[in-house]
């Protein structure tokens, strides 16, 4: 148990995908008062199983790629991992501080300056003023935005925003870092800068979960991989084998 950074047991997540209107309200009320047995009412809603009984463990210091087609359940899994939503059943346990980069617009506000946004972002993840002050210089250097710290964020390009977010999170090193397709619209230069930074913080003990569709990056960065398909996962494998499995089952 102590070697595991993250441990996932029987994780299941069900979503309702119908429209919310008076029909679904009626259903919800009946469900709420548990009257299903007394009323001969059809309570079948449109539900999908986004995650279906997932089990795996990730060791400390590992860099794991989550691979799968769009809609396979990777982002749902990461949302549950970040404690943003609850699983329908099952559990995840992890130790240390976890920070997830799930969207690029992560709580940033266009009207505020880059400096204000960095402080806001870091504080949202639970860091104190002192911790952020210490790392502030490193953060703006890595993101290459020294000239723009007092510029309102709405004037930044999307690449600059990504750099800012990534820089903030990776420089205030969490114990577990989750990156959900954040390098999709970055230039080559920044992609490799990020990969190298992640390798660096990994060598200092951070466990990394990396979601991407770019094979080159995954092969470069990750040691192991987990393949998601329609809410199920195959067991954690060596990255080469995992990519093989993905290609076999999806592309051909």
């Amino acid at each position: 148990m102590h070697n595991n950074a993250i441990s996932v047991k029987n994780l299941t997540k069900e979503y309702e995908i119908n429209v919310l209107d008076y029909k679904s309200f009626k259903r919800d009320l009946i469900n709420f008062f548990k009257l299903n047995k007394y009323l001969n009412f059809n309570i079948n809603t449109n539900k999908i199983l986004a995650l279906d009984n997932i089990n795996f463990d990730i060791e400390k210091g590992d860099i794991v790629a989550l691979i799968g087609k769009n809609g396979a359940g990777k982002s749902t899994f990461l949302k549950i991992l970040s404690d943003i939503t609850e699983p329908t059943s099952g559990e995840i346990s992890y130790s240390g501080k976890l920070i997830a980069m799930l969207t690029l617009n992560a709580g940033l506000v266009g009207d505020c300056t880059a400096k204000e946004n960095i402080y806001f972002l870091a504080s949202m993840y639970g860091y104190s003023k002192q911790q952020i002050d210490e790392k502030f210089q490193e953060i703006i250097e890595f993101a290459e935005i020294e000239k723009f710290i007092d510029t309102p964020l709405k004037k930044f390009s999307s690449g600059m925003t990504t750099r800012l977010v990534f820089s903030t999170i990776s420089n205030i090193k969490p114990d577990i870092l989750v990156a959900d397709e954040i390098l999709a619209n970055s230039d080559e230069n920044f992609k490799y800068k990020c990969i190298n930074k992640m390798k660096e913080i990994n060598s200092e003990g951070t466990t990394i979960l990396f979601v991407s569709h770019e094979e080159k990056l995954i092969k470069n960065l990750c040691k192991n991989g987990i393949y998601f398909k329609k809410g199920r996962t195959s067991s954690k494998k060596n990255i080469e084998e995992c990519l093989e499995e993905y290609k076999e089952k999806e592309i051909l």
Partner: peptide, 27 residues
């Protein structure tokens, strides 16, 4: 050790406020 599951009891609110006090000020 953090455990995530359905209907989990979250941290005591006062401890949370203390830990996230800088975030509160930022908000």
């Amino acid at each position: 050790m953090k455990i995530i599951k359905k209907n989990n009891k979250h941290q005591n609110i006062f401890i949370s406020i203390l830990e996230y006090r800088f975030f509160l000020i930022q908000l």
